[in-house]
Write a protein that binds this DNA or RNA. Structure first.
Length: 270
DNA sequence: CGCCAGGACGCCC
DNA sequence: GGGCGTCATGGC
């Protein structure tokens, strides 16, 4: 991890980071692109403006303390993604292609509660609308609402979110977390399968939402979210199953594959 | 107007 | 245990 302090800013040097591939691909929904190569957004209640390309980035008005405590972790800067890509690329030609296609992908290590709630709202929804819902959440409460705040709401009182049938999922999650029925603090130390089963105890959290939350919010890199795109990848390239030797970090491999299949089909449609 | 969006649920057999 | 309609909302 290479960085410098420059006045009120942090200068970050990270060749394996492309903001568009990380902040604008449906991993996190709290980021807004304000100009080419320029984003602003949140990790829970920490605000950041970041800009840059070609391995050089500026984190505006960011203390070294906030950088080390929040953003280094958020952007997963301690993980060697070049090494991961080498491992994936050696496993099979499809992964090799996907890794070369988007070399700037990283796993955003989000706050667990924020990730859980965000992916609950992602159910049968599109990225633009999910961002809108998350934005209205922050705007309404003046910060990212806690489970304690949200458990006092009803699906009707959350009408301002315009989140449709997902409002009752949100309330159920808040009630179970605030009431102690589900202790999010214990999820990271649980084995993957047990953690997944636990999160699926929330109404509106099925296998896909649980895996997304576990991967991005609770450090479970073996979580392997299976949506319509990844089902297509599995049918087409992995009829015999995904390589077992990659099990431990297959969730990160999934990020490369997801981006690869989506972007290339998008391009083919035009 | 119909279709789709990083799904989950309830009901059916 | 798999298949299918339904669930709000908004962009296209």
């Amino acid at each position: 991890m290479k960085y410098e302090i420059s006045g009120n800013n942090i200068l970050l040097f990270e060749p394996d980071l492309i903001l568009d591939e990380v902040l604008d691909t449906g991993q996190a929904f709290g980021w807004e692109k304000t100009a080419p190569g320029h984003y602003r957004g949140y990790c829970l209640d920490e605000y950041l403006e970041i800009e840059g390309e070609d391995g050089r980035f500026t984190l505006r008005d960011t203390s070294e303390e906030a950088f080390l405590k929040v953003w280094a972790k958020y952007f997963d800067l301690e993980t060697d993604y070049a090494a991961l890509r080498r491992e994936y690329s050696a496993a099979d030609p499809t992964l090799k292609e996907a890794c070369e296609f988007s070399r700037g992908i990283r796993l955003l290590r989000q706050d667990g509660w924020e990730a859980l709630l965000s992916f609950i709202f992602s159910s049968n929804n599109n990225i633009t609308r999910i961002k809108g819902i998350i934005s209205r959440l922050r705007e309404h409460y003046g910060h990212f609402p806690t489970a304690e705040e949200l458990c006092r709401e009803t699906p009707e009182s959350l009408g301002f979110l315009r989140s449709g049938f997902r409002a009752r999922y949100c309330v159920d999650a808040a009630k179970k977390v605030a009431g102690g029925e589900i202790d999010l603090g214990k999820i990271p130390e649980m084995p993957y399968e047990e953690a997944k089963k636990t999160l699926m105890g929330i109404c509106g959290v099925g296998p896909k939402v649980a895996d997304c939350a576990l991967l991005s919010g609770f450090g479970k890199t073996e979580a392997f979210p299976m949506d319509v795109w990844m089902k297509r990848v599995m049918e087409r390239y992995y009829p015999g199953g995904f390589p077992e030797e990659l099990y431990r970090t297959r969730g990160i491999a999934q990020l490369y594959l997801f981006n690869y299949i989506r972007k290339s089909e998008e391009a083919a449609r035009v």
